[in-house]
């Protein structure tokens, strides 16, 4: 356990070293949120509600999307996939530790650093929003339930991303993986719009997939659309998906590492 704590400490320090990347992440998330928000605010000038969502609820939804993303997002495939592609995996293989646990510690360290910086900003933003609209949509109970799902969603996303990372054993470019995930979460996870904006058929389809646990479901709890009575079923569902992702990730690792070759002088 000591060695994994060491990895955690190293990556936490490394996050501190490149603080400008965190500022970049915040600006990037704000830009992404702004593109969508500006359009919907314009639409609400002529509509009272859309898909049962009022303007204040829609604004809260899109403002919270980046925050949820900071907890549930995992961007391991880009970095680790590149290391596989460049033949740098060998340095990990020779070390006496399990790569997936080391990677988990790496992601966790970066996440905790990011959250510690972003959380105060978000609390201020939500207070500002409540003052601006003179109404509050968030309850402590809803936020706590949402955060619980977020944590489970983070673990699910970690193993999903790990499975995607191991695909680098068979491909020569990993940039497209990150892009691929952004699109999938954009549509199927609820980043681009709440499921209520969709037709009933599409809503039913999207509810069958695991991506809803990364954005839409936590947001539903936070905005009070989902109560504690759904929690057990949601956690059960997420656990099943985590099990599936773990199986896929480990199967891909077993196959990939046998195929892996690094050549150098």
């Amino acid at each position: 356990m000591q060695k994994y704590l060491g990895i955690f400490r190293n990556y936490f320090s490394s996050s501190l070293e490149y603080r400008s990347n965190l500022i970049g992440l915040i600006i990037k998330e704000m830009i992404g949120m702004g593109v969508i928000l500006v359009l919907w605010v314009t639409i609400y000038q002529s509509e009272e509600t859309v898909g049962g969502y009022s303007l204040i609820k829609t604004v809260h939804y899109y403002v919270l999307v980046p925050f949820i993303g900071i907890i549930t997002q995992v961007q391991l495939s880009n970095e680790l996939g590149k290391e596989i592609k460049d033949g740098l995996l060998s340095s990990h293989l020779t070390k006496p530790y399990k790569l997936w646990i080391g990677s988990f510690m790496r992601v966790l360290a970066e996440k905790i650093f990011t959250l510690s910086m972003v959380l105060p900003l978000y609390i201020l933003l939500i207070i500002g929003l409540d003052r601006f609209f003179d109404a509050s949509l968030l309850s402590m109970r809803g936020v706590l339930l949402g955060l619980m799902i977020c944590l489970a969603g983070f673990i699910l996303h970690f193993f999903l991303d790990l499975a995607i990372t191991w695909l680098a054993f068979w491909t020569d470019d990993v940039w497209s993986f990150k892009h691929f995930k952004d699109i999938i979460f954009g549509v199927l996870g609820g980043v681009s719009f709440p499921f209520e904006f969709l037709t009933p058929g599409l809503q039913a389809l999207f509810h069958l997939l695991p991506f809803k646990f990364m954005y839409y479901i936590p947001l539903s709890y936070m905005l009070g659309d989902r109560g504690a009575d759904h929690l057990v079923m949601d956690l059960l569902g997420i656990t099943v998906w985590i099990g599936i992702m773990i199986s896929i990730a480990f199967a891909l690792w077993q196959m990939g590492v046998r195929k892996y070759g690094a050549y150098g002088g």
């Binding site: 509509e47 691929f180 699109i183 954009g186 681009s192 037709t199």
Partner: peptide, 30 residues
């Protein structure tokens, strides 16, 4: 690298599909 090429192409086409779908949802409501 043909496999990578087809993955890249698939991703680019998915991105376009996502953009169209997004505006389809918008115009499904207004």
């Amino acid at each position: 690298y043909r496999t990578s090429f087809f993955i890249e192409l698939l991703v680019e086409i998915l991105y376009i599909g996502w953009l169209i779908f997004y505006f389809k949802v918008v115009f499904g409501n207004v």
